[in-house]
């Protein structure tokens, strides 16, 4: 049976997504470790299907400033993938790469933003490459786009993009751990419904 929305995914399907995401995020952590020359570990991700307000609550405050990198997926899987940096995660990256740290995103300059965009892109690419290899699909990625803005406004982008299909987001929450400290970040992978069906079929779990 084909599913018509994210929330129709059953436990088995969510479990498989979690399994695959866990491999994807560990690849992302490895790339990040190499880039920052620092040991980055990652927790086993939870995959949840959330409404807009739940997703905002899970990640932070609605008016909180965060940095986000967005990449569009195409080919076998169409959709969006979004990586959200909160302040602590941004500082770990910027301290290592540029040697600066901040108390708020508003103090940063274009150089800092572009470093974050690059790191967001690397995390997304290694995640998606591992994911695509495992599922056996080809996924092309667009050049990254990024913004520093209110969390609530950023999350309306995928919600509006798929607003005619679903009111839900698929949130993959794996926390990066650097120097024993858990960093807050968020990865949202949003295949459109047709692509999600294709993924589930490929994995042999479509019910």
């Amino acid at each position: 049976m084909r599913i018509k929305s994210y929330e129709e995914m059953n436990l088995q399907e969510l479990d498989v997504m979690k399994e695959i995401s866990s491999i994807g995020t560990s690849h992302a952590a490895t790339s990040l470790s190499k880039l920052l020359q620092k040991e980055i570990r990652i927790t086993i991700p939870e995959v949840s299907v959330l409404g807009y307000e739940e997703a905002v609550d899970r990640i932070g405050e609605i008016e909180e400033l965060v940095a986000a990198t967005l990449v569009q997926m195409s080919n076998d899987v169409d959709g969006l993938i979004l990586f959200i940096f909160k302040m602590d995660m941004a500082n770990v990256v910027l301290e290592k790469l540029i040697g600066k740290s901040y108390t708020s995103f508003e103090e940063m300059d274009d150089m800092d933003y572009s470093a974050l965009e690059e790191v967001g892109n690397i995390i997304i690419c290694s995640y998606v490459n591992a994911f695509a290899q495992l599922v056996g699909v080809d996924i092309d990625l667009s050049v990254p786009s990024s913004t520093v803005n209110m969390l609530g406004g950023i999350l309306t982008v995928p919600i509006a993009e798929y607003g005619y299909e679903t009111d839900k987001l698929m949130y993959i929450n794996a926390e990066f751990i650097a120097d024993g400290v858990r960093l807050s970040d968020g990865l949202l992978m949003l295949p459109d419904i047709e692509s999600l069906n294709r993924i589930l079929e490929k994995l042999g779990v479509s019910s």
């Binding site: 569009q72 050049v143 786009s145 406004g153 309306t156 982008v157």
Partner: peptide, 11 residues
């Protein structure tokens, strides 16, 4: 909110 190069329709 986001500008994707090469896809001006997005967003």
């Amino acid at each position: 909110m986001f500008e994707i190069r090469g896809n001006s329709d997005f967003g």
